[in-house]
Every structure is written in structure tokens, then in C-alpha cells.
């Protein structure tokens, strides 16, 4: 299995704050890798650093065999890395189809764009229905689908998904994650997934990292993470049996 993305010892600043304090992760081809972490852990900074929106202060990022740290985001995007940002960020006044075609901007002139458009519509039928509608007038869930579809249109070697469940109902979240899984299975899309909803993320991904205060504190395949006592207590909201039926204090994290 080849490694699509290799992040080594990356340090990044978010303004004056050192948001990443030496992070190393790897994404193998064909897999979904997830990054878990609380608010402010540095998840989005990591995504932005990978896609080139933020330059890393230190460290290397290798994407499909090439060094990409310090490169401009448009170069990175056209080399096959699609960033589906937090909060969707679709172009509100463009129609659904225009948004999707924009996703294929870097492949201009390619003959199979129409096929890909069909492929996206087959995964998200609602987008086909609304292809002429201005995307800003759609619901949050539909916009999220559009954002993912737009990412797919670039035929990416790697797709970064930043909190696809943000602001979505539980049912819609399940639907979106179902499609993410199918895309991975059927279209072999490699994904790096940032998620607050640890439960669904770990059930979707093959491998996971836990990011806390800009550092990776735990890594392992999803099975291992799901069974870890710390993950269960701090990310899955399960608590051990308490003597009193209520518990205010938190156990100390050991990350094993």
C-alpha cells in the first residue's frame, strides 16, 4: 500500500498561537484516516496546512511523492488534493451544476467531466434535482453534499473532509457518512477526515489519530481506538460504573 500523504513533524502557527507542535501522520492509498480532537486541538489548522492555506513553520509534507509544504494552495489543489472545508463554503450565487463544474476547473477540457457529473449525481440524486438552483438557497445537508461532490469533481488522489457533520441532523449525518464510505469502497477515494463526532468517524475510518493541544497523543486502527478506555470516556461519552450513579471528576488520560 503506498502512502498518499506523509506529514512529518509539522509545526504551524494560527496567528500567534502555535497550533501544531510537531505532528506526523500518514494516509495510505485507498483508506480513510480520521483525526479526532476537541475544539482548538489543531485539526483544522492541520487540514489547512496540508492544503497549503497555511504554510508550516517546520516540517515536511509529501503528497503523492512530491514535497508540497510551502507550495501555493492552487498548485496543491491541481496536483490532486481536494479540500472540502469546514462549513462547506459553496459559492452561494452559482447554481449547483456550476459549483460542481468549478470543482473540475483544474481538469478543464477533459472529456470525461460529464461522466463524473453523472457519477456525482448518482451518489447525490438530490443535486441532480436541484442542478439549476442557486446553491445558497439549499439546506445545510444539501450544501454539504454539494461540497463533497465539488471535491469529487477534481478526481482527487486525496480528499480532505473537515467536519462534514457540522450543523447536520443525526439522520443526515448518517446518510452523509454512508455515502463517504461508499465513495471510499466503490470509487477508491482516499480520505483524511476531521470529525468531532468520534463515534461515526471511527466506524467509518480505517485508522485514526487523536490530536490534543497540537500533538498526536494516540494513534491506531479504528478497532483499537474504539476499545480504548480513554477514547470511550473522553470522545464517546461513555463512563465507567460509578459508585454513586453520578460522577463529576474525570479520570486522568493515559492514551493507551
Amino acid at each position: 500500500m503506498t502512502t498518499v500523504l506523509d506529514v512529518q513533524n509539522v509545526e504551524s502557527f494560527y496567528g500567534a498561537v502555535m497550533a501544531l507542535r510537531g505532528v506526523s501522520i500518514q494516509v495510505p492509498e485507498g483508506q480513510i484516516v480520521t483525526i479526532l480532537g476537541a475544539n482548538g486541538a489543531g485539526k483544522t489548522t492541520l487540514m489547512k496546512t496540508v492544503s497549503g492555506v497555511i504554510y508550516p513553520e517546520k516540517g515536511h509534507i509529501t503528497f503523492a511523492g512530491d514535497r508540497i509544504d510551502g507550495k501555493d494552495p492552487e498548485k496543491i489543489a491541481s496536483s490532486g488534493l481536494a479540500h472540502v472545508p469546514e462549513g462547506r463554503e459553496v459559492f452561494p450565487f452559482l447554481t449547483v451544476e456550476e459549483n460542481l463544474r468549478l470543482g473540475a476547473y483544474s481538469r478543464k477540457g477533459a472529456a470525461d467531466i460529464e461522466d463524473d457529473l453523472d457519477m456525482v449525481y448518482s451518489y447525490f440524486p438530490i443535486l441532480r434535482e436541484r442542478r439549476k438552483q442557486a446553491s445558497g438557497t439549499m439546506s445545510g445537508g444539501q450544501q454539504q453534499m454539494l461540497a463533497i461532490g465539488r471535491g469529487l469533481m477534481a478526481r482527487p488522489k486525496l480528499m480532505l473532509l473537515d467536519e462534514p457533520s457540522l450543523g447536520l441532523s443525526p439522520l443526515l449525518t448518517q446518510e452523509i457518512f454512508g455515502i463517504i464510505s461508499r465513495l471510499n469502497h466503490e470509487q477508491k477515494v482516499t480520505m483524511l477526515l476531521v470529525e468531532q463526532n468520534a463515534n461515526i468517524a471511527l466506524h467509518t475510518a480505517h485508522y485514526g489519530y487523536v490530536l490534543e493541544l497540537g500533538r498526536i497523543v494516540m494513534a491506531g486502527d479504528s478497532e483499537k481506538l474504539l476499545n480504548s478506555a480513554d477514547i470511550q470516556e473522553f470522545y464517546l461519552g461513555q463512563q465507567g460504573e460509578s459508585q454513586r450513579g453520578q460522577k463529576r471528576w474525570k479520570k486522568r488520560k493515559t492514551w493507551r
Partner: peptide
């Protein structure tokens, strides 16, 4: 040791690695 690894650009994720 983390500081050493970071300075020398040695990739690591958690304590075990």
C-alpha cells in the same frame, strides 16, 4: 525526547511510536 525528535525532524505520533 519529544523535543529531540521535533528538532531532528523525526516523525512520531504517539508515545509508542
Amino acid at each position: 525526547v519529544e523535543k529531540f525528535a521535533q528538532d531532528k525532524q523525526i516523525p512520531f505520533s504517539d508515545f509508542a511510536s
